[in-house]
Each structure stands twice: as structure tokens, then as C-alpha cells.
Amino acid sequence: MTTPQNLKYTKSHEWVRTEADGTVTVGITFHAQEQLGDVVFVQNPQPGRKVKQGEECAVIESVKAAADIYAPVTGEVIAANHDVADHPERVNQDPYAAWMFRIRPGDPTELAGLLDAAAYQQLAESEKH
């Protein structure tokens, strides 16, 4: 399963999971890590930072590329995953477990505008060719 059905997605290849408490968890997709190759560095935003939808807020680097990670929704960063910063290889091993940061959304209506799994799958396929 490279595009889990229960997640939402962005055009810039982040996955987004809504938690029970209304916060959202963010990582990068299987397709994104495949394009990057071996991830060697993850830089997460500081908890407490206010972000706008589409704002650059994290960076993932491989040996030959670097990708900016964009906030999928507006809100406040409430947590960052230190484990993935210490072990960047986890992004390749299991991108959907290797979450990067959590946001408390300021505008819940933004979530509805994200892609569902089918739409994202289509986008990822089109980029491969």
C-alpha cells in the first residue's frame, strides 16, 4: 500500500492525518521519498511556530536533492518528531510511520480542500511519466 486510503494528501507530496483531538500529523509520501532517494537529513519546525497553509516549514535532504516541506494547513506547530531527525533513514523505511510534525489547525475548512488517496495516486502516477 503506497497511498493509504485513510490519509489526505497535498500536491506537494505531504500526507496529512487528522487525529482524534483535531490536530493533524504531517509526513511525506512513499512517492516523495522514492523520488528523493536515501534521506540523510530532516529539519523540522520549532513547536510554537505559527504557519500558513503552503508555507515552507521543514526540509528533507537526500544526497542529491533537497525538498522543502510545506504546511498543509494554517495553524500552530505543536510537536516535531525528534526520532526522525535523529534517524532520517526511517523516512525511506516507512514514510507513513515517520511523521515529521503536528499542527493544531486554525481553519478546519482547509482540510476539506486536500486531495484524497485516489486523487493523489493519480498525481503521483502522472509525475512518474
Binding site: V40, F41, E61, S62, V63, K64, A65, A66
Partner: peptide, 9 residues
């Protein structure tokens, strides 16, 4: 650490 450099970034 070439991802810092102009030919990649």
C-alpha cells in the same frame, strides 16, 4: 552535504 550548494539547492 551537497544539498546546501547551488548545483542542487
Amino acid at each position: 552535504l551537497q544539498a546546501r550548494e547551488q548545483h542542487i539547492r
